[in-house]
Write a protein that binds this DNA or RNA. Structure first.
Lengths: 225, 225
DNA sequence: ATTATCTATAGATCTATAGATAATGC
DNA sequence: ATTATCTATAGATCTATAGATAATGC
């Protein structure tokens, strides 16, 4: 019976086992939190999804909130880091004359690519992050993990728009991030509204349009203020 | 002692009393749901905020979810209706040659004005709606209450941009609604990022910029696709 | 020996219902 | 007489802890 096919529990080192279980817990929590938010998920839900006992959650994490933070942190560093690199690369290339659209491509496309290439787990993280971003618990984490990248983007935009009041640049960013969060949330509303013409999961279509759309917005603010 | 100043419980008709209590419950729930979401609020929390017993919630509402829906519905009809009128008025005025910016002003400014003029309760509703909009429970309600206005907006945009693929118009709307929701959420993140230069509550500043910004975005999509 | 997982359980809290009390309504 | 509000309480569920069992590690 259990000779040819490997048993469900292959022999692993403890370190491997710990890493695997941790990842499974984070994946399950990420998915569930992205659907229902911090308070809409119980530790039991997460444990059941993984197939382990509820109390194991407390073995790996202090409490529910620290699990939530761990989910946030796991990928926040990756996307934040990648985008920072992309922005620095662009800034170096462009020298004294960066463009708004160039900076936005570096900022937005790098992020969207992660979800496009990262498969289901990253897509779950996208929705998780979007929900977290407009939530009390998430606000602190957003600041902590994403302020540096955003301020880097803003600094390049200031170079590109030297005569535009700083205020307008921040409001422009406010619009950009809203659109990005709405994209990441993938509520499916655009599918229904458009009668199936657009798909919320079609990040490629969004990548094709977003930086251009937003750059034009910034220019319009700059020219008329 | 209690002769000159009116007692806390002035004599009211039952209909008045019902209406008042209902409104207090909805206000309290609106505030709390806007901060913590459906699952982050207990009926006890709402009752305590009103100063009545928990079980009174069940006297007025079947369960927590129907309270949530009542909160959503109370003002959704108002904003949806006002915006529909504004769009129809604009469409009539503009005839065969509406502009993207004109349509967006009607759509966005009418909404923003409601919050600007409506004081704290409307501001709470703004945040409540933004959170609901990217939530499973809220998605259905968004469709039900806001599809007609949005489709009206889209139909005017199509007139304004006759050569632009419908897809691009829907994606443009997708960006607009994201920015609007991020505005309504008032997380305060823009305050911190901008070092106090911008204030999330400053809907007047946003109204000054948003339609112009977004209209330019639509034009950029139209011209280069 | 150490670490991963599970069993048992305490204590808190939440939703929901039945039925009592205290107001308003004719 | 009817309606608004409260008391009492059942039953479910949730978080968290203590301590047992079953694996891996030298």
């Amino acid at each position: 019976m259990s000779d040819g096919s490997p048993a469900k529990r292959v022999r692993r080192t403890k370190a491997e086992q710990r890493a695997e279980t941790l990842e499974q817990i984070l994946d399950a929590a990420e998915y569930l939190f992205s659907k229902h938010g911090l308070h809409g998920v119980t530790l039991r839900d997460v444990a059941q999804r993984v197939g382990v006992h509820t109390t194991l959650m407390h073995y790996y994490f202090d409490d529910k909130k620290s699990l939530f933070e761990a989910v946030f942190a796991r990928r926040a560093g990756v996307t934040s880091g990648r985008r920072m690199e992309a922005l620095e690369r662009y800034a170096a290339e462009a020298g004294d004359h960066p463009t708004v659209e160039g900076a936005l491509h570096a900022f937005l496309d790098t992020d969207l690519d992660l979800y496009i290439q990262g498969g289901a787990p990253w897509m779950n993280y996208a929705a998780f992050g979007a929900l977290a971003s407009i939530t009390a618990e998430g606000a602190v984490l957003m600041d902590r993990y994403f302020d540096p990248v955003v301020l880097k983007l803003v600094s390049i935009l200031k170079l590109a728009l030297p005569d535009t009041p700083e205020e307008d640049i921040f409001w422009g960013y406010h619009f950009v991030t809203g659109s990005l969060m709405n994209t990441l949330a993938r509520t499916g509303r655009i599918d229904r509204l458009s009668g199936g013409l657009c798909h919320a999961d079609d990040f490629a279509a969004i990548k094709q349009r977003m930086a251009r759309f937003m750059a034009a917005g910034f220019m319009a603010l700059a020219h008329k203020t």
